[in-house]
Write a protein that binds this DNA or RNA. Structure first.
Length: 269
DNA sequence: CAGATTTGACCAGG
DNA sequence: CCTGGTCAAATCTG
């Protein structure tokens, strides 16, 4: 397929950004001394950011390839095959299982259940694609890692057919929010939907939890440590191509997204 | 008021 | 019988 994957697009654009930053550094070097050091430092930071994005995206991409023969992130086998009946066969293998420090994978998920799992300190959360109504049968199971409380083990099942849905929606000038009919107070998500044309990029998509109570979106772990009484945490996560968002001028949330997921915070300070 | 989230119950496999 | 996965009514929020 000659189709550029979102990951490839990000890589390409980040590479361009990298080059631009390098160029900027060169220009600054030729600039007047008083501002030089400061500006060069900024250019250097941009370069580092690009490096990290590229590294993260590359790692994510290769990871995926290693994990599954699954080019489209969570797109995979026929849902019917994965879920013969309404109940998944116990122990059925996930299409792929990933370890990440964020639960965001670029798709929009809606939680439909939560369970305290025997032998685990953390509850297991069940999500299905928010576009299920459009025929997307993808589901995922998220659980916090035992060894690394900050990490998540995410198992994917079923197939994302919402990629098509994304394209459709993108073709028409839709209002920003689709999933957040009521609870998604986070404006950033509005922008997301506008960018939904891309199949998304797990490694870049950051955690977007949209909590009705407006907790810090980044605070993934906090959700997990709450109540023992197996309660679900409302959460709709989504993501899209930060680059596309950037190009579309809807960069706000994506930038935050990238910063969060790649921990640019420390770089930007 | 519409729609999402919460949460207990139900169901099926081991 | 226990455990995990899903459903669906109740609840909540914007």
């Amino acid at each position: 397929m000659a189709l550029a994957t979102p990951t490839a697009v990000v890589l390409e654009l980040m590479t361009m950004g990298q080059q631009s930053a390098a160029h900027l550094g060169d220009l600054l070097r030729a600039a007047s001394p008083p501002v030089r050091a400061e500006h060069q430092a900024l250019a250097a930071e941009i370069l580092r950011c690009c490096d990290r994005v590229i590294a993260a995206v590359s790692a994510g991409a290769s990871n995926k390839k290693r994990k599954m023969t699954d080019p489209g992130a969570t797109t995979c086998h026929p849902p019917a095959a994965a879920m013969p009946s309404k109940r998944r066969v116990r122990g059925a293998e996930a299409h792929r299982e990933v370890h990440a420090d964020t639960t965001a994978d670029g798709f929009v998920w809606r939680k439909y259940g939560q369970k305290d799992i025997n032998g685990s300190n953390h509850p297991r959360l069940y999500y299905r694609c928010a576009f299920r109504g459009e025929g997307c049968a993808a589901t995922r199971r998220v659980q916090r890692s035992q060894e690394e409380p900050a990490a998540f083990v995410i198992a994917y099942y079923g197939e994302h057919t919402c990629g098509a849905a994304f394209s459709q929606q993108r073709a028409e000038p839709q209002p920003p929010t689709v999933v957040d009919s009521g609870s998604n107070a986070w404006g950033v998500f509005g922008a997301v939907d506008r960018n939904r044309g891309s199949p998304l990029m797990p490694s870049l998509a950051a955690e977007h939890d949209v909590r009705r109570h407006g907790e810090a979106p980044r605070d993934t772990s906090q959700r997990w440590s709450s109540p023992s009484s197996s309660s679900s945490y409302s959460e709709v996560e989504l993501g899209a191509s930060p680059v596309e968002g950037f190009l579309d001028g809807n960069f706000d949330w994506e930038w935050e997204t990238v910063v969060n997921s790649l921990r640019f915070g420390d770089l930007l300070h």
